[in-house]
């Protein structure tokens, strides 16, 4: 084993940040102004939504699970926020609580299915995605309801777009989320237990840890973060639309993996996943600046993920 002053996990996180910086540098070469402050903040703003979803995905992946219900939990959250707030500031708080609650409940249901009903995570969260999709479409009549066209309450739009100290509010929010999630994972009992379960659920159980309850909570958190991203996306774009959650499944998993979180669980952290979200978004922006068509982006996406996976090394568990 090589003598390195940094752990392999820390190196992966650094690699993810390095990739992000590199992409901005490349962008600056191919497109003057790419690395300007305004351009960077607008790219980071886009990365925020991926990053928030990735926070939830990160929690679940850390215990060796996966959340495929992201697209419709996010989409349903966006719709619920619009329809329950009716674009009025006075109803915004109520709508936000309701929406986050919906995400939390959907996540908990995933956790219950995985932990107590013994349904494989892939199947349970896939089914949940369908369940929420059906409910969202059915209850809104396929987005034809009167309230469906509602705009986000101005206060929510402002909480995304308003600029504080030159930086959009949503970015500040993401920064807070990064700090909180990193704090929770790194310094709290809950975080420690999460790593313990991801590392060796049997050993964690034999050390007296309530593995089931913790796992259910982690799925709940994933639902919560998807819902939060949905709320902010409505604030960002103004209205909810069908299919707005679809890209976030692939991107959240990709961000988590690029950020060095092991898909088998137990290793990695949210700092890395956040960097993954940034580099992914920066990559897209660079490719856009190069006038790369859609298909090219899709291909390069896949190639970059494969390259990083191979770079990070083999599955050390076996």
């Amino acid at each position: 084993m090589k003598r390195l002053s940094l752990s392999p996990d820390a190196l992966r996180v650094l690699a993810a940040y390095g990739a992000a910086v590199l992409l901005f540098v490349i962008g600056a070469f191919v497109h003057p102004g790419f690395a300007s402050f305004g351009s960077i903040t607008s790219i980071l703003l886009v990365a925020t939504f991926v990053g928030l979803v990735a926070a939830g995905q990160c929690f679940v992946v850390l215990v060796g699970g996966i959340d495929l219900s992201v697209p419709w939990v996010l989409n349903a959250a966006a719709i619920l926020l619009a329809t329950s707030s009716l674009g009025q500031d006075s109803r915004a708080a109520y709508a936000v609580v309701l929406t986050l609650g919906m995400g939390l409940v959907a996540g908990f249901a995933n956790g219950v299915g995985v932990v107590w009903l013994g349904v494989p995570a892939v199947v349970m969260t896939l089914a949940m995605n369908g369940i929420i999709e059906g409910l969202a479409l059915g209850l809104t009549g396929g987005m034809t309801c009167g309230a469906c066209a509602s705009y986000a309450p101005p206060v929510i739009a402002a909480s995304v777009h308003d600029v504080w100290l030159g930086v959009p509010a949503a970015l500040w929010l993401w920064l807070v989320v990064i700090l909180i999630v990193s704090f929770v994972l790194g310094l709290t009992r809950f975080g420690r237990i999460t790593y313990a379960i991801g590392n060796n659920p049997r050993a964690a159980y034999l050390a007296g840890i309530n593995v089931s309850l913790t796992t259910v909570c982690l799925y709940g958190l994933s639902g919560l973060f998807s819902a939060l991203a949905g709320i902010l996306l409505v604030g960002f774009g103004g209205q909810a639309s069908l299919g707005m959650g679809t890209p976030y499944l692939f991107q959240s998993i990709a961000a988590v993996v690029i950020g060095g979180v092991s898909i088998l669980g137990g290793r990695g952290n949210y700092l890395g996943a956040a960097a993954g979200a940034v580099s992914l978004t920066a990559l897209v922006s660079v490719l856009l600046a190069l006038n790369m068509p859609d298909y090219g982006r899709s291909i390069i996406y896949g190639v970059v993920i494969l390259a990083l996976l191979l770079l990070y090394g083999r599955d050390q568990r076996e």
């Binding site: 310094l187 009992r189 420690r192 590392n199 050993a203 964690a204 034999l206 050390q316």
Partner: peptide
């Protein structure tokens, strides 16, 4: 397979069952 969290530090392995006791408001 039953005892250790192999890729976690010695510290984490030692403190696992007493986390509740050495935490304040959930913070270790």
């Amino acid at each position: 397979t039953e005892g250790l969290l192999l890729s976690l530090p010695v510290r984490d392995n030692l403190s696992l069952p007493l986390l509740r006791r050495i935490s304040r408001l959930g913070v270790i």
